[in-house]
């Protein structure tokens, strides 16, 4: 499949948040402020790209030759957990400010459904290495795009008169519903 098609469809058409519902847990927590949204988006992009490429190699060069395809889930999730641990150590040493602002959400990237999904999707779709790399960059960029859009909307929503039971997350889901309608306009783009 054309690399451009993969990129656009992962970024806009099959947007990981609005279309596939992945990565919602940290999404609701981090999309309240703009700067933490950008930081989180970049961290997730790095993690997904690194973890997916490494797991691609792990699958095709270790699991398949040994006939251990059923160990895929365990190996992938352990790989993701170790990779996030490594990234956490690296961020702590190199930029403590970013580490502090991300707080608990950095180790929680392990449980971000999107990371495991992308790693497994690359295998299910049978992508080559280049296609895997493009997909693994496009999906988290879509995630970051949504985070930034939502952060700007939610920052303005805070000052408005939201009904009491909708305050916080429920109104964010209403916003997501409207954005989902908006993004269906991209269907058939490629």
């Amino acid at each position: 499949m054309n690399l451009f098609t993969i990129f656009i469809s992962a970024l806009l058409i099959n947007n990981v948040i609005l279309s596939k519902f992945l990565g919602m847990c940290p999404f609701m927590g981090v999309s309240t402020k703009l700067d933490s949204a950008v930081g989180m988006g970049l961290a997730v992009t790095f993690v997904i790209f690194g973890a997916s490429v490494i797991s691609w190699f792990l699958y095709y060069y270790a699991l398949v030759p040994l006939g251990l395809e059923y160990m895929e889930l365990i190996c992938f999730i352990l790989l993701i957990a170790s990779f996030v641990q490594f990234v956490e150590m690296f961020v702590k040493k190199s930029s403590p400010g970013l580490y502090k602002s991300l707080g608990i959400f950095l180790p929680l990237i392990t449980t971000n459904c999107a990371v495991l999904y992308v790693a497994q999707d690359n295998i299910t779709q049978g992508y080559s290495l280049i296609e895997t790399m493009v997909n693994s960059v496009a999906v988290p960029l879509g995630f970051m795009l949504m985070l930034v859009i939502f952060a700007t909307i939610r920052e303005r929503l805070n000052g408005n008169d939201v009904p009491e039971s909708f305050r916080g997350n429920p109104i964010a889901f209403i916003v997501a519903a409207i954005m989902a309608i908006a993004f269906t306009a991209f269907a058939g783009l490629v």
């Binding site: 609005l18 279309s19 519902f21 009904p163 009491e164 039971s165 909708f166 305050r167 916080g168 997350n169 429920p170 109104i171 889901f173 209403i174 997501a176 519903a177 409207i178 989902a180 309608i181 269906t184």
Partner: peptide, 22 residues
């Protein structure tokens, strides 16, 4: 049945639970 409806239903149920809690 679409993604939009999913978000909407979730929002309303979450708001109901929040209202009950409040």
């Amino acid at each position: 049945t679409t993604q939009t409806g999913s978000f909407l239903t979730f929002a309303i149920l979450a708001a109901l639970v929040a209202a009950y809690k409040n």
